[in-house]
């Protein structure tokens, strides 16, 4: 692209530009989708820590799967839900590389719950980026384990009824009952401040992995305007007003210890 890499004048300071670890290619994500933001933040962290060339990502079924189009590092697909198992295999064979998984709520908290819990419990030195947008995106807006009570989806057309469909699963809290994780944090793409916190959380997680600290999971509450059935702006408001009360933000595990 002609404008994106022009050299700044001596007196210029670049406040923001596309990170080098992000491929110069428009994404397939819907307008206002948080995946783009999450990708961008990961790319920024890879740039900041200068680890792009030693990073291997794992992207499973779902909207997450096409990460290899956008992130300029080695990436493997994984079968639905098996992302932490694939990441485990990679990391154990190449312990000096940086390995992250990039998973949606269906992948991580429904079909892949066993792999999620056991990778965390083994304290695998990997970073799990968990994009929680409360619905299945790619398959057409079905109910996810993290769908809010009363939220309408393709498979809860009258709203999620907790009496027969359960209630939203809080992954950070659940994993925080284990002894092994090193860092667990929930952030939200609910505005510029939230995005800056998400960037910092990812930086903490990847840096910790570089230092061999162990398992980290960053849950990112993220807009899926299409399947939340909202405009991008209202989807961001939904995160603030609907999701955050159900999924409280904060650091749950710091330096291997639960934060109380």
């Amino acid at each position: 692209m002609s404008t994106s890499r022009s050299r700044p004048k001596k007196t210029d300071r670049i406040i923001y530009r596309r990170p080098l670890s992000l491929v110069d290619r428009p994404t397939h994500f819907c307008p206002g989708c948080g995946h783009g933001t999450a990708h961008k933040l990961i790319a920024e962290v890879l740039d900041t820590l200068k680890i792009r060339e030693k990073t291997i990502g794992v992207a499973p079924v779902g909207c997450a799967v096409m990460a290899y189009y956008y992130l300029n590092c080695d990436i493997s697909e994984a079968a639905h839900g098996r992302t932490p198992a694939v990441a485990t295999g990679i990391k154990r064979c190449l312990p000096d590389r940086i390995v992250f998984s990039y998973q949606g709520d269906g992948d991580l908290a429904a079909i892949g719950m066993a792999e999620t819990i056991h990778a965390a419990n083994r304290g695998e030195n990997i970073t799990v980026v968990f994009v929680n947008n409360s619905v299945y995106g790619m398959t057409g807006g079905q109910m996810a384990p993290t769908t809010l009570n009363g939220q309408k989806t393709a498979t809860s057309p009258c709203g999620r009824d907790s009496r027969s469909m359960g209630t939203p699963i809080r992954i950070c809290e659940l994993l925080n009952t284990l002894d092994s994780p090193w860092h667990i944090e929930r952030v939200a793409l609910d505005g510029p401040a939230g995005i800056r916190k998400a960037r910092k959380a990812l930086l903490t997680a990847f840096k910790g992995q570089m230092e061999g600290k162990g398992y980290s999971l960053i849950e990112i509450l993220s807009p899926c305007p299409i399947h939340m059935r909202l405009t991008p702006r209202d989807a961001v408001r939904f995160i603030k007003e609907g999701m955050i009360p159900a999924f409280p933000l904060g650091v749950f595990r710091k330096e291997g210890k639960p934060v109380t």
Binding site: P8, D12, R13, I14, I15, Y16, G36, T37, P192
Partner: peptide
Amino acid sequence: DMCPDTAIELREEM
């Protein structure tokens, strides 16, 4: 920061 599509570049000129 907010842009999900990394479409915005921002510079400061002195």
